[in-house]
Design a protein around this nucleic acid. Structure first.
Length: 104
DNA sequence: TAATTGACATCTG
DNA sequence: CCAGATGCCAATT
């Protein structure tokens, strides 16, 4: 699998996350590991840093259900817009975490 | 080629 | 709950 295809796979997976649901970077990495054999939360983070603008980046959060200060405001607005379950100002991961194969 | 950095995760104190 | 340390993999410098 070439790097480009790997990036594509990540973007496609993120694109498949339904509105109002989210996935953690680690979750995306884990899902991609089964498909591409290699992934890590940092890799997904790096890819989002470059290509994030091309997809619904607000549907990918870190393990605490929050986002870096830089994106927190924008992300919160989008979460409210899509009705993402929030808890104490962060995404309620217990409920909002989505995994591929669910809802198809 | 080696060192540094980054939209992360997880453990320890 | 916060801060520090370690592991991870690729892109940059």
């Amino acid at each position: 699998m070439t790097p480009d295809e790997y990036v594509e796979a990540v973007l496609e997976l993120v694109d498949r996350i339904p509105p109002g649901r989210v996935m953690s970077y680690g979750g995306v990495a884990d899902a991609l590991t089964e498909r591409s054999g290699r992934a890590s939360a940092r890799l997904v983070g790096s890819i989002m840093a470059r290509q994030g603008g091309a997809v619904g980046w607000h549907r990918v959060v870190n393990a605490t259900g929050a986002m870096p200060p830089r994106l927190a405001a924008e992300a919160r607005a989008r979460w409210l817009s899509e009705g993402t379950p929030l808890r104490a100002g962060r995404v309620d991961m217990r409920v909002a975490q989505w995994r591929p194969g669910e809802g198809m």
